[in-house]
Structures are given as structure tokens and as C-alpha cells.
Simulated assay, not measured.
Amino acid sequence: MKRISLLTLLVFISAHLLFAQQKKEAKKDTYTPYELLSSYYNTNFSPFKKKNIYVGLSFSLADKKLQNTNYLFQEVIDGQRLNYDLVAKVGYYTGNYGMAGLNVNYYQNRFEGTIFRDPDTLQSNSITRGFAIVPHFRSSVPLTPNERLSFFTDVGLSFGMAHNLKRETKNHDDVDKQFSKDYYLGIGISPGITFFAMENFAFEMQLNVLGYQLHISETRKNEGPLSREVRQNVNFNIDILSLELGLAYYFGSKKMRRGVG
């Protein structure tokens, strides 16, 4: 009984404090950091309104230390892989809940280490650098009345190019060099979630679900002839490893109404 009475008292005190806090918020125009996480979004908050401007940034980094790791045709005895991917985003709302945007992506994949490829042990070094430009259109659907949480779908067309240089050394003086240039053209659909954390700043989570890609690769090994490969891919999958996290800012989301004097 003592526990039940204590619990009832705590609930009563919490409700009283919450009511007093809400009453206090209603009387002032400025917000504390805590209040920016709640009541800021309840008045005139329209992040997806026509003429609003969107700016976003996402970044991913993978640093792996590999030892005695088996792959399909080779084993990494000792090596390190460092990959990063940077995406800058900008958009303009041409209508309510509809945005025309542009993403610019730059990425680098690097590997250094010792590998075993039967019957040889090789010293391998490779680096890939590439970029992509993705014009797209986004449609947003609010999931809460104050539009703080929403679902969106991006439909975009991508153009990209990458360079890859790979060097493998055997017996200290037997060196194989391979240089390749890749071109990409694709179209894709990427759904995601937007959550406003404070004021006009929002966190975004996005997945690449459906896409078509045309891939053209030109490769030259040592001083040999140039080889060319044309490949077309159609993908439909939900891969949690392709989840992209980012931060965005919406200009014009909070436009307070002016009173009439």
C-alpha cells in the first residue's frame, strides 16, 4: 500500500508540474532548449511549405582492420580498408510538400594490405575515387499533426564517374598495375524519414530500395589493351546496411504571424 500511495503522489506532482510548465510556456515568446524540443513545433511550423529552402549533409565512414579474413577467391592476411562517402544536398519547395533537389556525392575507397591468392602471397594497394550528381524530386507526407515527423520519397536520376588504381606486388619485383574508369547512369527510388530535433534542424534516415543502373567500365592492365564492359542492373531490395543518415536545415519553416497594431 505504501508503494501505491507513493506512486500516486508522484503522478500527482508530475501532472501539476507539467501543467505549470505548459502555462508558463504560453505566457512567453522565448524558448529554453527543452522547450525547443516540444512547444516550438505547435505554432505556425510548416517545414514543407512552398518556397521553403532545404540544405542537407550526410557522411559515412568505415575503417576496418582485417586479419585472416576469407573472401571468395582470396584471403586477407593483414590489411586495412578505409571508405568514406560525403553527400551535399540542396532543394527548393516548388509546391506544398513537393521539393526539387540536387545531391552532389563524393566518395573514396582505399585498401592496403597483404593477401593470399592461391598459390601466391601479394602486397595489394588500391584506391577508388568517384563522384555523382543526382537531381531528384521529393514528396513528403507528415506523420504527426505538427509535421515534426514525416515520411518522404525521393525519385532521382544519377550521373557519376569513378577512377580506380590497383597495384599488386609479388616477389618484391613482379608488379601488376590495373587502372579503370567507370561511368554510371541510373534512376532510383529512395524512401526515408525526417525528424525535427531542434528548431529547423532535422535528422534524416533514407534507404535505396528500387533502382536501375547502366554501368560502363574501361580497364587497362599493365601495358595491355583497353577492355570495355557494359552492364545493366535492376535492383529491388531492402538492405539495412545501405541506410543513409544525415542532418538537414529547412529555411522558412517557422514564419510567425504578425499581429495587427
Rank of each mutant, 00 (worst) to 15 (best):
K28F: 07
Y40I: 03
Y34A: 05
Y54W: 12
F19E: 05
D29L: 06
Y40N: 02
T43P: 04
F19I: 08
Y54Q: 02
E35D: 09
Y31A: 00
N52Y: 10
Y40K: 06
N44T: 06
A26N: 13
Y40T: 05
D29K: 15
Q22M: 06
D29F: 12
K28S: 10
K51A: 13
K28W: 02
T43D: 07
Q21H: 04
E25H: 07
Q22C: 05
K24E: 11
D29R: 10
N42D: 13
E35A: 09
P47V: 01
F45V: 00
Q21N: 11
T32K: 02
E25D: 14
D29Y: 12
K51H: 15
Y34H: 04
Y40E: 01
S39D: 06
T43G: 05
F45S: 00
I53K: 12
T43W: 05
L36I: 06
A26G: 13
A20V: 01
L18T: 13
E25M: 04
I53G: 06
L18R: 04
S38P: 09
F19A: 14
Y40D: 00
A26L: 08
K27A: 12
N44D: 15
T30E: 06
A20P: 05
Y41C: 02
T30I: 04
T30Y: 13
L37C: 04
Y34D: 02
Y34F: 13
A20E: 02
K50C: 05
E25A: 11
T30N: 14
P47D: 02
N52A: 07
Q21M: 00
P47F: 01
P33Y: 08
K49N: 10
I53S: 12
L18S: 14
E35N: 07
P33I: 00
L37A: 09
S46I: 08
K23D: 09
L18N: 13
A20S: 04
K49I: 04
Y31E: 00
T32Q: 00
F48I: 01
K51W: 15
Y41K: 02
L37K: 11
K27W: 11
E35Y: 11
Y41R: 01
K50L: 08
Y31I: 00
S38C: 10
